[in-house]
Nucleic acid binder design. Structure first.
Length: 880
RNA sequence: GGACGAUUAGCUCAGUUGGCAGAGCGCUGGCCUCACAUGCCAGAGGUCACUGGUUCAAGUCCAGUAUCGUCCACCA
């Protein structure tokens, strides 16, 4: 073995390499953006991970894709910026901290707001730190000098600015409506934060005097302030407008019957009870018919004083009691099993209670119209496009956005209430006294929905509301890469707020990446316990292998992907393959002088591999431009493994080890270095660490591959002639190897092969005898007039025939079997092609080149068939 | 109730404008050939879920069916 290769380990060891390069890149300032720097801007803001622990595979995928794009663009000469940061995740952090407190036997109320917030900040520091470390470990080339957190002072200012502006424009208002209340979290939730789940329930038919109606929530009976039927329902027309006096669990009650379109006469009995205090539909009906709101369930999920004898009971306990009591009073008609969906808190899964309360809202309808148009007019491109329909549907059916939360961790609502005159003041600056009467003021205790601040992220991180160089250079950002699960939560809000407050959309492209599932197709989540720590995977297989795997599964248009360990192993092997190919190159560079002009025409293999490289570069660029990360990754993979390693390196060895002419060796070294160096640059965005490590070991490298140019195809590099000629050589080699394999001939045996070349093949084969001989382990003799020697196997490559001498090597039984199989295969192809070409419509209507191609194929197959069957007959005789 | 997605090799999945069905893993046979056994060479393996339609030509376009999945939705 060569000295150089013995110095480099034969297995790629990622740990040391990764630990060395990341800090070095950071130290040299490669990640840092300069708004005044040269090049077209290309910017990305990170979807800020929640500070709720550590990163999972979805984050790893999402950030790998962003890093691939940003590294590629940086190398390509763009003025790149990737803004990193984290999200305070108001309610999610509450849930975590409250669970911790619960374990200590305490509640947040016992702790008090101030102490709770201290804990929250401490949690944020820990979790945020973990996340940042993980991102760095992943190789993410973010500009850390611009790291942001959604509760940074600057972003807090942006939040206030946005709130005040929207309030002044009348788009933010306060009002009493029915809301989704989580009795555990003790806060309101927006409609989007309600998760639905099918549950089995009882559909209880209760007698209301002369009427009977079904309900799944008998406990809300206590809050009934009306009954409703459909206006066209003749069955009940006589009762509409009447006030009925009917027996109930709390004695005789009076209840008014109204007619409302919301009632479906086909469902149940066609009569519903109206409980405006505890049902969104009933709330609306109540408003239309002026029915009073009676709140019988409180914020704690227990029955209120209004519930009379039932006060203090848990709502579900109350349900059972009411049913029992109705039963006793003979007021239950019947009970049927029923399956329906209930609303759950998206964070803690508690069954929500619809309640009436005073909250802050954004009237998003006007913003939605603008946001809709932005996509419709392609100012924002959603990729894959099919998601735009979902986006439109949501925008079209949008309802007011409830933005207040009865939580402590988050942006406090910038509204102050005067205790003296009751006035409300929304302000950019903190208020200490009432601007109208000078009396004492009290700030609204609530905080904003987390998504309000993340909705401002693309411009708040760039300095808004100030007019900064960053905003001017990098806004709108180039692309947003995120999961489709937060299309409404986040993407839609950013488009609405960006278009409204900045008068310009926040990003040009939205690439919605797939969601990552485990090998069983389960969504990875902590509650399922199937979360595999990405750090462990990176430890085991290396970051580059992990990233390459992630990029490899990111196909456009795919919703979910499963990732298995085998896949990462394959990528690890790929990294190792590249490492060893480089070892081969590096250990054969003695006498090589970088930059020296090589003399003489480039040999075929060199022209071929450069042409293949050109095609690969073109493919990678095209695929990345369309966010087809998997296709880009696979193009490089195929090139490196199969073109470069399997074929080119094997051919290069011939001139490296046995060149008769030193210039020939120099030419090969030149191509080896050039192709490897370019390949490393091409691959760098996917596998940043290993490519840098190898690149640094190559002669005449620059400072860092990170800032080297991204490969472009040189003029004249694509060489169709070389590709065609090499295809012939490769087919010839494969044909001989095929016979060796089928005949079970040892690779150690050199085969004697006589070639009878087709006239057009003759010069190519004559010029590549040494190649074929080495690669196929054969001794070749070319003879245009050759006839089949006795005891030989036949292979047909295009119009050329190969006779492989088997005499004394094996008997011909295997050859007969092989030929029979080949003939059958040819027959099938011939039958298919003949049928096709026999159809006049095909010959007339199909493009000429398609028809011509099929004709040639048929002729070729027929020729092969003739030769094969002649050969079979010949063997039959020979064997006799 | 709507909308969207999936169904292709044993497994996991690509397949762009309709024009020669692919990859990785696994499997079979042979190889420790001086970069790599995390490897090399060769091979087997397909009714592209089903039914119908459009077309010279359909995995690809259209209609429908089945199964699985996701999202949205105020039928209590």
């Amino acid at each position: 073995m060569n000295q150089a290769s013995s110095l480099i380990p034969d297995r790629y060891e990622p740990a040391a390499v990764e630990a060395r390069w990341y800090p070095e890149w950071e130290r040299r300032g490669y990640f840092r953006a300069d708004p005044d720097g040269p090049g077209q801007p290309f910017s990305i803001v990170i979807p800020p991970p929640n500070v709720t622990g550590s990163l999972h595979w979805g984050h790893a995928l999402n950030n790998t894709l962003q890093d691939v794009l940003i590294r590629m663009k940086r190398m390509d000469g763009f003025n790149t910026l990737w803004v990193p940061g984290t999200d305070h995740a108001s309610i999610a952090v509450h849930v975590i901290l409250e669970r911790q407190l619960e374990a200590e036997g305490r509640t947040r109320y016992e702790l008090g707001r101030e102490v709770f917030l201290e804990r929250a900040w401490k949690w944020k520091e820990e979790s945020g730190g973990t996340i940042i470390r993980q991102l760095k470990r992943l190789g993410a080339s973010c500009d850390w000098s611009r790291e942001r957190f959604t509760m940074d002072p600057g972003l807090a200012r942006a939040v206030r600015e946005a709130f005040v502006r929207l309030y002044d424009e009348g788009l933010i208002y306060r009002g009493d409506y029915i809301v989704n209340w989580c009795p555990r979290c003790q806060t309101v939730l927006s409609d989007l934060e309600v998760e639905r789940e099918e549950r089995d329930a009882e559909f209880v038919y209760i007698k209301y005097g002369p009427l009977t109606l079904g309900t799944v929530r008998p406990e809300t009976k206590l809050g009934d302030t009306g009954l409703a039927v459909h206006p066209n329902d003749k069955r009940y027309a006589q009762y509409v407008g009447q006030t009925l006096r009917i027996p109930s669990v709390d004695g005789e009650i009076e209840i008014r019957v109204v007619a409302d379109e919301a009632v479906d006469p086909e469902f149940g009995t066609g009569v519903i009870k109206v409980t405006p205090g505890h049902d969104p539909v009933d709330f609306e009906i109540g408003r239309r018919h002026d029915l009073p709101v009676r709140t019988v369930i409180g914020f704690d999920g227990k029955m209120t004083a209004e519930a009379g004898a039932y006060a203090g009971l848990d709502r579900f306990e109350c349900r059972k009691r009411i049913v029992a009591d109705l039963q006793a009073l003979g007021l239950i008609d019947r009970i049927e099993p029923y399956r329906h969906s209930v609303g759950l808190c998206y964070r803690c899964k508690t069954v929500l209670e619809p309640l009436v309360s005073k909250q802050w809202y954004v009237n998003v309808k006007p913003l939605a119209d603008v946001a809709r148009a932005a996509v419709r007019e392609r100012r924002v491109n959603i990729i894959p496009r099919s998601w735009s329909k979902t986006y439109y549907h949501w925008m079209d059916n949008i309802r007011p956005w409830c933005i207040s939360r009865q939580l402590w961790w988050g942006h406090r609502i910038p509204a102050w209430y005067c205790e003296a005159d009751g006035s409300v003041h929304v302000s950019r600056a903190d208020l200490t006294a009432c601007p109208t009467c000078g009396g004492p003021v009290r700030q609204d205790p609530d905080v904003l929905d987390t998504w309000f601040s993340s909705g401002l992220w693309p411009f708040s991180t760039l300095g808004w509301p100030d007019d900064t160089p960053e905003l001017r250079t990098y806004y709108p950002t180039s692309v947003l890469v995120t999961g489709y699960d937060i299309l409404f939560f986040w993407v839609a809000r950013m488009v609405m707020l960006g278009a409204h407050l900045m008068k310009e959309v926040p990003f040009r492209d939205v690439y919605l990446n797939t969601l990552v599932r485990d090998a069983e197709g389960q969504k990875m989540s902590k509650s399922k316990g199937n979360v595999v720590d990405p750090l462990g995977v990176m430890d085991q297989y290396g970051t580059d292998a992990f990233r390459f795997t992630l990029a490899g599964v990111a196909a456009a248009g795919v919703r979910d992907v499963r990732i298995s360990e085998e896949r990462i192993e394959a990528s690890r092997n790929f990294a190792n393959k590249l490492w060893n190919a480089s070892r081969l190159v590096l250990s054969n560079l003695d006498g090589y002088e970088p930059g020296r002009k090589t003399k003489g025409a480039r040999p075929l293999p060199d022209r071929w591999i450069r042409s293949r490289l050109a095609a690969t570069i073109r493919a990678v660029r095209t695929h990345l431009g369309r966010y087809r990360f998997n296709d880009a990754a696979s193009a490089v993979y195929q090139f490196v493994w199969h073109d470069f390693c399997d074929w080119y390196l094997e051919m290069a060895k011939i001139s490296l080890y046995r060149a008769s002419d030193p210039a020939e060796r120099g030419r090969t070294q030149d191509t080896l270095v050039a192709v490897l160096e370019t390949t490393l640059r091409l691959l760098h965005p996917f596998m940043p660490f290993i490519t840098e490590e190898i690149w640094q070991r190559l002669p005449a490298h620059g400072d860092s591959i990170m800032i080297a140019p991204y490969p472009k195809v040189a003029r004249g590099q694509a060489d169709a002639g070389a590709e065609r000629e090499m295809a012939l050589i490769m087919d010839t080699v494969t044909a001989i190897r095929n016979i060796r394999g089928e005949m079970r001939i040892s690779p150690a045996t050199t085969l004697g092969v006589t070639v009878r070349p087709a006239p057009e093949h003759a010069p190519v084969l004559a010029g590549a005898t040494a190649l074929v001989e080495t690669l196929a382990r054969a001794q070749l003799s070319l003879d245009p007039a050759a006839s089949r020697p006795a005891g030989s196997a036949l292979a047909v490559v295009g119009g050329s025939e190969l006779y492989v001498r088997l005499e004394g090597v094996v008997d011909l039984t295997a050859e007969r079997a092989r030929l029979t199989k080949e003939i059958a295969r040819a027959d099938e192809a011939i039958r298919f092609l003949e049928t096709k070409l026999a159809k006049p419509e095909f010959v007339e209507r199909a493009p000429a080149e398609v028809v011509e191609r099929e004709r040639e194929k048929l002729a070729g197959q027929q020729e092969v068939r003739t030769k094969l069957s002649a050969s079979l007959a010949w063997i039959g005789e020979g064997a006799r």
